[in-house]
Structure formats: structure tokens, C-alpha cells
């Protein structure tokens, strides 16, 4: 009886999560998949087929945008890691007590306003009549106004800025758990800063690096607002393309196919990343 009762309780507790998974994640994706393999053959007449996927591969614009989005997301992830690691190291290892809390909070401040406002902030800085352009003119470093918006660099800046917190938090957590005496032992045994970083700090921080990278990659890949606003209409971001199919062209079938491909892409990259790092994780941590 007891076990039946607790089983019931277990399922009741699990129900909201299962419901959420089923209604918001699994069902839409099944729907997406079903729509994506539908082809319109006449008004209100549909047939199953892989025509939408064929379109994707036949149209260079689609798969080039697809590849570009993937590569830029990976680059943004790498850049976020390179920028986030020193920040996290500084917060975790070189500060204590109140300074630490303050710095940590300062990382979060940008997230108190909506992504839209944050991105507009960058637009105000970077546009032709913006703060940086004016400052450069005022200092006499440039002759006329400079446009720094609507290029790939602007997109990168926006992506890194939007997602750096999600890199810093897991890194701080793992670096915090690194015993200072391990670093000191490294120095004591004749290690240089670079050797200690490579042989002691990074292997220890690997779980944080991996989880941070996964989150940042997902966020960048699925980001819609930042590429459109900072990169302009022709930013060629894959989410933008999906949006166009659904909203502008009313081509839900192709839109679904593109959406499904994006899902496959992110799963594949994360799987690959996990596979690569777990290999080293298993080797370095080795505590299955």
C-alpha cells in the first residue's frame, strides 16, 4: 500500500513536468515535423514528401545562411569563453567576500532590462550618428561619420554581450571549487602561469566550460533579435529566415522544415561538443 501511495505521489509530482514536456516541447515538434513533410499540391491539398528539405539543399541561400549561422554561433561561443574565463577567474579566485558578490551582481545588471532595450543600447553606441561615431569625430580621429552597425562584427558584439553571463556563472561555480593550494603547488613545483592554466585550472574547470559553451551556443543559434537589430535586414541569420517563411511568406511547410533543420543542427553540434569534451572529461575526471 505504502509503495502504491508513494508511487502515485511520485507520478503526481512528475505530472507537471511531463505535461510541460509533452505539450510545449514534444507535441510542437511532432507538429513541426509533420508540417515540414507536407507539400502543397493545390489549394488546400497536401501530400507527404520531402520536397521542402530538397528545396533547402537546392537553394544556396538557405544552406549558406544555415552554415553561416552555425559558424558564427560557434565563433561567438568561443569568443564568449575567451572573454568570460578571465572575468570568472578574477571573480572566483582573486576576490573575496563583498567584492566578489558586487562583481557578480554587476555581471547581472544588464539582465535586469529586456533584451530589446539592451540591444538598442548597442545601436545607440554603434550607429552612424551614435556615441562612438561622434566621439571619434570629436577627437578628430575620423573625418566623417562612421557606421558600425549592420555588419558581422556588430552581430558578434551583441551575441557575446547577450550571453556572457551564461558563461561566467558556471565558470565561477567550478573555479570557486578549485582549491587555491593546487595552484600554489603548481607554482611550487616550478610551473609557469601558462602551464598551471593548462594542466590544473582548465582540466578542473572543464565541466563549467562545457555547460557554459552549450548554453551560449544554443542562445546564439536561436537568437533572433540581436542579429536582426544589429546586423540589419540582410543579417542572414537562420532564425530570421524561418521567421520570414512563417510570417511573410505564409509558407509554413518550408518554415517548419527549416526549423526542424535548426533543431537537428543544434543537437548535432552539442552532441559533438559533448562527445569531444567528455572524452577528455572521462580521462581527466574519470569518476563515472
Amino acid at each position: 500500500m505504502v509503495s502504491d501511495g508513494s508511487k502515485l505521489g511520485f507520478y503526481l509530482l512528475l505530472a507537471p513536468i511531463l505535461l510541460w514536456l509533452a505539450v510545449l516541447i514534444i507535441l510542437p515538434h511532432i507538429g513541426l515535423f509533420v508540417v515540414s513533410i507536407s507539400e502543397r499540391v493545390g489549394p488546400r491539398e497536401y501530400e507527404y514528401g520531402i520536397g521542402n528539405y530538397v528545396t533547402f539543399f537546392e537553394e544556396p541561400l538557405y544552406w549558406r545562411t544555415f552554415a553561416r549561422t552555425a559558424i558564427m554561433s560557434i565563433a561567438a561561443t568561443a569568443l564568449t569563453l575567451i572573454l568570460g574565463f578571465p572575468i570568472a577567474y578574477y571573480i572566483a579566485k582573486l576576490t573575496r567576500g563583498r567584492t566578489k558578490t558586487t562583481l557578480f551582481l554587476m555581471c547581472m545588471i544588464p539582465f535586469w532590462v529586456s533584451e530589446l532595450v539592451r540591444t538598442f543600447g548597442w545601436m545607440i553606441l554603434l550607429r552612424e550618428t551614435g556615441v562612438i561615431s561622434n566621439a571619434l569625430q570629436y577627437l578628430g580621429l575620423v573625418d566623417g561619420p562612421v557606421e558600425m552597425l549592420y555588419n558581422d562584427a556588430a552581430i558578434m558584439v551583441g551575441l557575446v554581450y547577450t550571453s556572457i553571463l551564461f558563461m561566467v556563472v558556471p565558470l565561477v561555480t567550478t573555479l570557486d571549487s578549485l582549491d587555491d593550494s593546487l595552484i600554489e603547488a603548481g607554482y611550487d613545483l616550478g610551473g609557469t602561469g601558462a602551464a598551471i592554466l593548462r594542466e590544473i585550472v582548465i582540466p578542473h574547470a572543464m565541466p563549467g566550460i562545457v555547460s557554459g559553451c552549450i548554453v551560449v551556443f544554443m542562445l546564439s543559434l536561436g537568437n533572433y533579435l540581436t542579429p536582426i537589430l544589429l546586423g540589419g535586414k540582410d543579417s542572414l541569420w537562420f532564425t530570421g529566415m524561418i521567421y520570414t517563411q512563417f510570417i511573410t511568406r505564409f509558407n509554413w511547410e518550408l518554415g517548419s522544415a527549416l526549423g526542424f533543420l535548426l533543431l537537428l543542427l543544434s543537437s548535432a553540434v552539442v552532441f559533438l561538443g559533448l562527445k569531444l569534451s567528455r572524452q577528455s572529461l572521462a580521462e581527466t575526471m574519470g569518476r563515472a
Partner: peptide, 17 residues
């Protein structure tokens, strides 16, 4: 890292990785 001394730490500080 340039001194000819080595130290055995209080909690040994062996590298767990």
C-alpha cells in the same frame, strides 16, 4: 617557481585531475 625548495601542503594538494 624559481626557488630550490618544494613544499608538501597541509592537505597535500595532489592534482585530482
Amino acid at each position: 617557481n624559481k626557488r630550490p625548495v618544494s613544499m608538501v601542503f597541509q592537505h597535500l594538494a595532489l592534482f585530482p585531475t
